[in-house]
Amino acid sequence: MNIFRLAGDLSHLAAIIILLLKIWKTRSCAGISGKSQILFALVFTTRYLDLLTSFISLYNTCMKIIYIGCAYATVHLIYMKFKATYDGNHDTFRIEFLIVPVGGLSFLVNHDFSPLEILWTFSIYLESVAILPQLFLISKTGEAETITTHYLFCLGVYRALYLFNWIWRFYFEGFFDMIAIVAGVVQTILYCDFFYLYVTKGEKVAIPS
C-alpha cells in the first residue's frame, strides 16, 4: 500500500458516499445517470468475486463490501425508492454499446483465460467507460448540480491517483499491469474535459453539448 493508492481509495470512497448521501438527503436523483450506476454495480460485482475465494486483508475486504453495498443501494434509490425523480428522458446512453464491446475485448485481451480473470478484465475495461452515460446526461441537460460535480471530481481523481500508484509500484516493486494501466489512462482522459470545466467554472459546470 502506498500513499497514492490510499488517497485514491479514499477519494473513490468519498465519491460513492457523496452520491449516496446526495440522493438520500435530497430524496432526488435528478441529474444522476442511473445507467452509470448500474455499470458501476456491475464493475464491482465482476471485480470483487474474489471476496468468496481469497482473503487479502481486512482493509481490502471491508472496502470491497462497502463499495458493492453502496453501489447497489444507489441503484436501488434511483430505480426504486426515488424512481419518480429519475431523469429517464435524458439518461438515454445505450449501455449495451459499452457492455458488448468491453465483454468481447475482455475475452481477447487478458492475462489468463480463466473465468475469474476474464471477469476481472471485463470489470477493468468497463470501469474505464462506465462514467460515459453520466457525462452524456450532463451534456444533454447542459448543467450539473454542484454536489454532482464534486462527486465526479472525486471519482475522476481516484483513478488518476491510481496511475501514480502504478508508477510508484513499478519503480519500487517492479509491479506492472498493462491492462489496468491502459484502462486507467483511458478512464482518466475521459474526465479531463470535466476536470477543466470543474476547475475553471468553479460552481456551475455546464458541459457544452
Binding site: D9, S54, I56, N60, H111, F175, D177, A180
Partner: peptide
C-alpha cells in the same frame, strides 16, 4: 512478473 502479485488493489 504479475502472477506473483495477488490482485491486492481495489
Amino acid at each position: 512478473e504479475l502472477d506473483d502479485f495477488e490482485k491486492d488493489e481495489l
